[in-house]
């Protein structure tokens, strides 16, 4: 079963030992630049190259590229077909199917859109593959976020497999009682309530137990917490985080202005 918290791939090295929030800052900077930074294709190629080198440095090139392709291939195929035929700025016709014409511009645009998403995905995967979710939550706690807030952010990710399990069990239970969910659209809509309602009711009932469990594990203890793993934020990394985000922000502002002026 897919367990989002187990995306972590065991490894060592400088990239791995970066503070989780430094890596997260990197991902945020990439996302900002990709969408708002100045430049178009050349920007994506440049950022892509940087991330590619980072992946090599982290020793995560193969898994991250593989996962990116696996996730993006369906999107790429759809875009290449749809944009090739229907991109509004299509002029250079490559071939035609009946009355539909396939154009070079659309093809390029499809590649561009996919590459934009691909670059961000790749950066996120490097973060996820090299950071244990539990270390991320520790980093958030140490950086001063309240433990309750950290729980709200992190625990749902751990609960996802349980949730998926329950959805599956609920479907089986209701089907066993004769609920038809295999029919047409209307049948499926009608079946939605018996499937969703137990999920929500059950989650509410579990909330008390979860709170109880946290209480027995001293989650509500007052005072300084300690950490199993020492997550040390050096001054140098602190500066790096600020630098990454500031540069990304400044470039984004430039990009916004540029677009406002030239479009």
């Amino acid at each position: 079963m897919f367990e989002p918290h187990s995306l972590y791939i065991t490894g060592k090295g400088t990239f791995y030992s970066l503070h989780p929030l430094t890596k997260l800052s990197g991902v945020l900077a990439v996302a900002l630049l990709v969408f708002l930074g100045p430049g178009e294709t050349e920007k994506i190629i440049l950022i892509g190259l940087l991330i590619f080198l980072t992946a090599v440095w982290a020793g995560l090139l193969l898994p991250s590229i593989k996962t990116t392709i696996k996730l993006l291939l369906p999107l790429l195929i759809v875009l290449v077909v749809v944009q090739g035929f229907f991109y509004p700025q299509n002029t250079t016709i490559l071939f035609s199917l009946g009355k539909y014409e396939y154009a070079w511009e659309g093809f390029l645009y499809a590649l561009f859109v996919t590459a934009r998403i691909g670059v961000i995905l790749l950066a996120s995967l490097l973060f996820l593959f090299s950071t244990k979710l539990s270390d991320f939550s520790r980093a958030l706690t140490i950086s001063g976020l309240s433990s309750g807030l950290v729980y709200l952010i992190v625990s749902p990710i751990y609960m996802l497999p349980d949730f998926a399990d329950r959805i599956h069990r609920i479907r089986e239970s209701q089907q066993s009682r004769g609920l038809d969910i295999e029919g047409n659209f209307l049948v499926r809509i009608k079946a939605l309530f018996p499937l969703v309602a137990p999920l929500i009711l059950g989650a509410l009932v579990e909330t008390e137990s979860r709170a109880l469990i946290l209480e027995t594990r001293a989650f509500n203890a007052i005072g300084k917490r300690s950490s199993l793993v020492e997550i040390y934020l050096s001054r140098r990394e602190r500066v790096l985080q600020i630098l990454l985000l500031t540069v990304a922000l400044i470039l984004s502002v430039i990009g916004i202005i540029e677009r406002a002026l030239f479009l």
Binding site: H5, S134, S155, I213
Partner: peptide
């Protein structure tokens, strides 16, 4: 299952 903290790997 419910007794796991859902905070640990």
């Amino acid at each position: 299952r419910l007794q796991l903290s859902h905070m640990c790997n």
